[in-house]
């Protein structure tokens, strides 16, 4: 299986690559300006997080093109998740209470990503902005005390967004979340 990690300039982009490789996936990091036609052999895409505010910009490399035309499962993380929400008509803005480090989230809808996992888990975060209004075609999967949209999913398509970081060591069940996502790519 081939998964491209779209690099939006995150501190943990390379960690996403590592986790995918450890799960036996052929993973490759590419610049977010890579044309979609060069990603034709992708079975799934991961949109990484990025430096401050990139999720709020009108353009995030070619992420809009991937979201519209890629036709494979996509996992947006942090800035990637925020951009996904905005692309489908949601809103993002500065978080009232930004979260860095350890946070507990509560799973509202198990759906695909949290299948078989506990209702509450410790995850690690690093964000100044957040999704303030979820797009209409998405359902809410998880929330934390200070950030409502910790995880979301498109109602029809295999598009997922996570505000927290499943790729870092200190997040519980990070590997399981990635495996559940990769399960979608196998379909």
């Amino acid at each position: 299986m081939k998964v491209y990690v779209i690099d939006n300039g995150g501190q943990w982009t390379h960690r996403e690559w590592r986790v995918l490789r450890y799960l036996g996936v052929e993973a490759e990091i590419v610049a977010n300006t890579t044309p979609l036609e060069k990603l034709k052999d992708a079975d799934a895409l991961v949109l990484s997080g990025g430096a401050p505010r990139v999720g709020l910009q009108d353009k995030l490399g070619n992420c809009d093109e991937y979201l519209q035309y890629a036709n494979v499962p996509i996992l947006g993380i942090c800035a990637g998740h925020q951009f996904m929400a905005r692309f489908f008509g949601g809103e993002c803005g500065e978080a009232k209470v930004p979260e860095y480090g350890k946070v507990e989230i509560e799973i509202i809808e198990e759906d695909v990503l949290f299948k078989g996992l506990p209702k509450k888990m410790i995850v690690w975060e690093s964000h100044n902005d957040e999704v303030t209004k979820m797009p209409e075609d998405f359902i809410l999967l998880a929330s934390s005390e200070n950030c409502r949209v910790q995880a979301m999913k498109h109602v029809k398509k295999p598009l997922f967004g996570l505000q927290f970081h499943p790729e870092v060591e200190h997040t519980q069940y990070g590997n399981e979340i990635f495996m559940n996502f990769l399960g979608e790519a196998k379909k």
């Binding site: 300039g9 501190q11 982009t13 430096a51 401050p52 990139v54």
Partner: peptide
């Protein structure tokens, strides 16, 4: 190693 160049930044990546 990886954290050295990741944290050093460049391009889209901020310099930590």
């Amino acid at each position: 190693i990886a954290p050295d160049w990741i944290e050093s930044g460049g391009g889209l990546r901020d310099t930590i």
